[in-house]
Nucleic acid binder design. Structure first.
Lengths: 136, 136
DNA sequence: AATTAATCTACTAAAACTATAGGGTAAAAG
DNA sequence: CTTTTACCCTATAGTTTTAGTAGATTAATT
């Protein structure tokens, strides 16, 4: 299941993407428009800024704004920042690899092979979509 | 991320599938062979029995055994029983549909469309694999 | 009939994670 | 220097995960 953090993050990004100019939008406005707890959204936007998706401006007329063009923001990178590994098991993760403690041998693990297939198909979907594709 | 319940369940199923006959295998043997906490595995096997994948036999010489042929057990049904919905968001789930509380309109939701793609590609992988395919 | 080997059931609990709230700080604008 | 906004830190209720404990039940064997 997708965490609300990810879902809210995606909604916030699309909301910023449909703004005509790239003028800062306040947290409160995004939260209200997307039905998101403001405090929660606050922390989400913060990580999106720290990871290079958003810029921010303090004080009056401040807020958050997109740094890059929506078409240059692939879903793979967004998902990895918000949700974490795309793979369902750490032992098949490309960016967050970790050995499973219960598996003596990955190659002989039945789950391993299946999860590689899932990872690749999910990766293809996210690879084929950018933020621009989320806008209808 | 895949829960350990699911991972262990899959491992147990494959272990039972590679048994030559369909003689009962004790929980302890499966647990030991797959490095699984026995008590945890116990509850997992119980749900797999109650949902029609396994049969069991009590008393001496008892244990768990596969009821159907591995090739007749699609991953979709196994995953739904062990892990729950295949969809990442309830509003795109085919078998566990639920409306999202924060979305006034599904059709205009940017996350919705993306998640449908993910669901379909994952569904295709699980649909193309049976328990027999996990054995190598 | 007694023993033993196994599943079954129910309850409990620690740990981790999720979602959210509160309150204070820093900077920008007027 | 006051207002407005993002920024940062902490706490916490709730849920899910991952088990552990204690015993009951069933069936085969002796």
């Amino acid at each position: 299941m997708l965490s609300k953090k990810t879902k809210y993050g995606l909604k916030a990004l699309t909301f910023l993407a449909i703004q005509k100019d790239r003028e800062p939008v306040q947290i409160a406005e995004i939260a209200k428009h997307e039905n998101i707890s403001q405090k929660f959204l606050e922390s989400i936007l913060l990580t999106l800024r720290k990871t290079g998706f958003l810029g921010s401006k303090k004080g009056k007329g401040g807020g958050y704004y997109l740094i890059k063009e929506p078409k240059d923001i692939p879903m793979t990178t967004v998902m990895r920042v918000l949700e974490g590994p795309i793979a369902l098991v750490p032992c098949v993760s490309l960016n967050f690899y970790e050995k499973c403690s219960d598996c003596p041998d990955e190659d002989s693990c039945s789950v391993h092979k299946l999860m590689i297939q899932v990872r690749d198909s999910t990766l293809e979907v996210f690879g084929n979509n950018t933020l621009a594709d989320l806008i209808s």
